[in-house]
Design a protein around this nucleic acid. Structure first.
Length: 182
DNA sequence: CTCGGGATGCGT
DNA sequence: CGCATCCCGAGG
């Protein structure tokens, strides 16, 4: 499998988000491998994005977003779920792509639609925060290069973000059964 | 230190 | 719509 290089992530966040669709998220742990094909993402495009955790500057929680491209930003939400992002753009420019849903490919039990369920099913929790996606424990790789249409919609759960809540920064594979809230 | 709320998901 | 459940970030 071809692991995506850091140069892949060191680009415009929307471009990275769209190109992550159809790629495979891989988590290897104690010899077992879990693979999911990414079917739904959201772009959090920078500190000017009012829906982004980085919009109020660097804090203990969002510090990974300010780090180099190609690392994971994993945080706990509502006391019971984790959400995984991949950090994009140049180091210091706090932007990321939230992984919202994958289609099970290998070693996955449980549901994978929605960022919280995705992390649960893939075994991704706090231990993966700041983890480098150039590693062989957690990475994203090329899959088959099939054709699909990309749907653009407003992001989920960011109504507090004013005009930014209306921007079409959620992307998913049209018609895919594992997309959340379709 | 307290306190309010959240890039969720599930049941009613 | 309510709620589980907890960490974070703001404010005193």
């Amino acid at each position: 499998m071809g692991i995506l290089a850091r140069t892949f992530y060191n680009r415009d966040t929307v471009t990275v988000a769209r190109e992550l669709l159809g790629k495979c998220l891989v988590h290897v742990e104690q010899g077992s491998r879990r693979v999911g094909r990414i079917v739904e993402v959201e772009a959090y495009v920078g500190p000017h994005d009012k829906a982004s955790h980085s919009s109020k500057g660097m804090t203990a929680r969002n510090a990974p977003m300010f780090g180099p491209p190609g690392i994971a930003y994993v945080y706990m939400i509502y006391g019971m779920y984790y959400c995984m992002n991949v950090v994009t753009g140049p180091e210091g420019f706090a932007s990321a792509v939230l992984l919202r849903a994958v289609e099970p490919v290998e070693g996955i039990t449980g549901r994978t639609q929605g960022p919280g369920l995705l992390c649960r099913a893939m075994g991704i929790a706090k231990q993966m925060n700041r983890h480098d996606l150039m590693s062989d424990e957690l990475f994203i790789a090329e899959d088959r290069a099939d054709e699909f249409k990309i749907v653009k919609r407003p992001r989920i759960g960011v109504d507090y973000a004013g005009a930014w809540a209306k921007r079409h920064l959620r992307f998913y594979i049209a018609g895919n059964a594992f997309v959340s809230r379709q």
